[in-house]
Design a protein around this nucleic acid. Structure first.
Lengths: 117, 117
DNA sequence: ATCTTGTACAAGGAATTGCTTGTATATCGA
DNA sequence: TCGATATACAAGCAATTCCTTGTACAAGAT
């Protein structure tokens, strides 16, 4: 029973812990642009299906994945808004990082207009 | 030091894990604007001095703290640039959180040698 | 030298993590 | 119905995490 359970900050903990694993970040990469069934996700790892299922559970619990059931399958996709605690953390400890990145992007793309054809 | 491309990104893991603890984030808050000796940091917690020292060790290992020795004391301060993996993670999974430039971030940061397990 | 202060190192324990194997449940197709 | 497929649940284990108490060591004061 360590790790003061009922802080106002449990979300941040859960999200950061969920992200602090390479397998789980890889899962997020797989589903960030299109939803995928659990089996397709599992197939891309050398881990067992169950291990991947457990990783999915951790990500789901952190709110980082949405689940949609379609027949026997479960389709997962990234729910990027649940990364808000990460954004807030960055804003708190390194506010410059956001504008710096934006600047870097603008430099690489000299025409950052809204159209962005 | 822009190299280190052939590292598996254990950096990201270490930094995220270090941040995934409320006590450690509180330590970062304490030293983000001015360096503080370990004892001052420890005094602000109900934990033992040793427990706080261990948290400091984790943060130091993640590169999030700089240490400066002054006599018997050790002064710590936030090294915010070590949050880079967090910024990159956000850029990858939620580029909108950093700017309104859509997925242009990915094109601007192809990161060909940085994919990891 | 000795004492006191500031800090880390060391060992150990309860809880948690990440994995495995085994099993259950639900859905689809014949 | 039965069998195959898709997926989660369950139990167990080694490693790790976060904490504790006890100790060591370095630097300043007496």
């Amino acid at each position: 029973m360590r790790g003061m359970a009922d802080r106002p900050d449990t979300d941040t903990d859960t999200v950061l812990r969920a992200l602090a694993d390479p397998h789980r970040r890889q899962i997020l990469r797989l589903v960030q642009h299109a939803e995928l069934p659990a089996g397709r996700i599992a197939a891309s790892f050398t881990l067992t299906q169950q291990a991947v299922s457990q990783h999915i559970g951790v990500l789901k619990q952190a709110g980082l994945l949405t689940e949609r059931r379609e027949g026997a399958r479960r389709l997962y996709a990234l729910h990027h808004e649940s990364l808000a605690p990460v954004r807030e953390l960055l804003a708190e400890f390194w506010p410059d990082a956001l504008s710096r990145l934006k600047k870097a992007v603008e430099t690489a793309h000299p025409r950052p207009g809204k159209g962005q054809a």
